[in-house]
Write a protein that binds this DNA or RNA. Structure first.
Length: 453
RNA sequence: GUGGUUGUAGCUCAGCUGGUUAGAGCACUAGAUUGUGGUUCUAGGGGUCGUCGGUUCGAACCCGAUCUUCCACCCCA
């Protein structure tokens, strides 16, 4: 052992069985995307750093993996900037590219660049890895796949309804009705309305960040945090009823409608929520439990309307999304609204594994193994091998003339279903993996019908 | 970025309060046996005990730093 090989923190290798499971998840999601009229695109793994920074808020800027410029990257650094040792200034001088942090921002960039060729409303999906310089922990990786579906160029709330129905479809299939999950919905306009209604319009983020922690740290700590952020005692007092909200989603919405009656933007948010909930109620959902959660905030800076998050017990959110009214605005295309969601394939993988929800995968491995104990075997089996492959059966020959035992162990470990062998007289036999009975056969058609029966 | 945690053979781990050439199981390789299905037996390869530095006559074991693992916070898929 010269040196111990390893991979970067938060990244993973995927074995054959893991890939089979991952592809199963991707296939289910992709099938739904297509069914709802989304078309696939792909964007580069790296973007210009300038298109990525400043779109998702300060927090996400910190988590962007930057790519060092090629060549003598230090030579171009401004000497004054260098001597300040200010990394954020120097960063932009030594790095002009970065790995994308999510798929929504590259998509917005794509839309602006290709606006003349796109017919709006545009439904696109994108399944690619994203990178975040985060600290790995449970369900959190530095390289992971997002499966994004976005509709851009439409204000209609029917899109929100469509996305939630699609979430229902995907998890109904993946969870097979055996696992509870909930789709939490809120609206940024409601959060703005709350800030406005308590007279702290400019403390919106402080309020939402604090509210978001309600179920984690409890009412008292949230109030403490608001005090620290210099909210007036009256404001905090008037926020209090929100923390004690009881009842189902409809009752909560009704309460907030009253609470926000003095705020235009708040009223708009309530209207939007009501539409989404009412429409979903009419259409019905297969397995999803949709709840209005006024404490749902979500950090990404660009959301302006509906926000969505899917949760399973004991896991961080497995799907998230929302509406953004002006994401393309930062790239020069105004007045284009979009809404989208992102399935976190890697977290879904962990959830399915934890709950034993993977179907048995058939046909992923070799179905038929031709044993090889002599060059006579090789010449007699090779034509059969290719004949099987030609009719679509996964088959291989053991390429070494090895001991029978070794070949059987190989077949067993690989999960091969059928074994073909010959004796010294040249008689050929086939058998299935779970029995020791060898059945003689003469023609390739006999073999095929045995395997495909 | 903050706090905690982990690191001994390819894998899972043992190694008592620091004391001679660091062990086991599995895996791997070769041979024998079973005489073409996973048995059994024998032998063998493989570790500068994450890395660097310190304490000590002596360190896998104590101390420091660093990297790594996992977990929590922040934030998020």
């Amino acid at each position: 052992m010269s040196q111990k090989p390893s991979i970067p923190k938060g990244t993973r290798d995927f074995s054959p069985i893991e890939m089979a499971r991952r592809n199963y998840i991707f296939d289910v999601i992709k099938k739904s995307f297509k069914k709802y009229g989304f078309q696939q695109i792909e964007t580069p793994a790296m973007e210009n750093l300038s298109t990525l920074v400043g779109t998702g808020g300060e927090e996400s800027d910190k988590l962007i993996f930057k790519i060092l410029n090629s060549g003598d990257y230090l030579a171009k650094v401004d000497k004054n900037a260098f001597s300040t040792q200010n990394s954020s200034i120097i960063t932009h001088q030594i790095s002009e590219k970065a790995l994308h942090y999510d798929l929504t921002v590259p998509f917005a960039r794509y839309v602006v660049q290709n606006q003349n060729d796109i017919t709006f409303p545009f439904r696109r999906f994108q399944i690619q890895p994203v990178w975040r310089a985060d600290r790995p922990q449970k369900g959190r990786y530095r390289e992971f796949y997002q499966c994004d579906a976005d509709i851009i160029g439409s204000d209609s709330l029917l899109n929100e309804v469509d996305l939630i129905k699609m979430i229902d479809d995907v998890f109904t299939e993946l969870f097979q009705g055996k696992l509870n999950y909930s789709i939490s919905i809120n609206n940024r306009k409601v959060l703005s309305g709350i800030a406005e209604a308590v007279g702290e319009k400019n403390k919106l983020t402080d309020i939402t960040v604090a509210i978001d922690k309600l179920d984690k740290i409890g009412v008292d700590k949230v109030l403490d945090e608001l005090k620290e952020k210099n909210l007036s005692t009256e404001s905090i007092q008037s926020l209090k009823p929100l923390f004690e909200l009881q009842g189902n989603s409809t009752e909560k919405i009704m309460f907030l409608a009253g609470f926000l009656s003095c705020s235009e933007i708040g009223k708009k948010g309530i209207e939007e929520l009501e539409f989404v909930f009412e429409t979903l109620q009419k259409l019905g959902l297969k397995t999803a439990k949709v709840i209005f959660d006024p404490t749902l905030a979500r950090g990404l800076g660009y959301y302006t309307g509906t926000i969505i998050e899917v949760k399973v017990e004991n896991f961080p959110s497995i799907t998230g999304g929302g509406r953004y009214d002006d994401l393309t605005g930062t790239f020069g295309l105004k007045n284009v609204s979009g809404v989208g969601i992102s399935f976190g394939a890697d977290r879904i993988y962990d959830v399915l594994l934890d709950n034993n929800l993977y179907p048995e995968f058939k046909g992923d491995s070799t179905q038929v193994l031709f044993t090889n104990q002599s060059s006579a075997d090789e010449s007699r089996f090779l034509p059969m091998l290719f004949a099987l492959r030609d009719v679509g059966i996964n088959a291989e020959i053991y390429t070494e003339q090895a001991k029978w035992q070794k070949q059987m162990i190989f077949a067993d470990k690989k999960g091969v279903k059928y074994i073909v062998s010959a004796n010294e007289k040249g008689e050929t036999f086939m058998k299935s993996n779970d029995s020791t009975e060898k059945i003689p056969f003469k023609t390739i058609n006999e073999l095929i019908s045995f395997i495909t029966k």
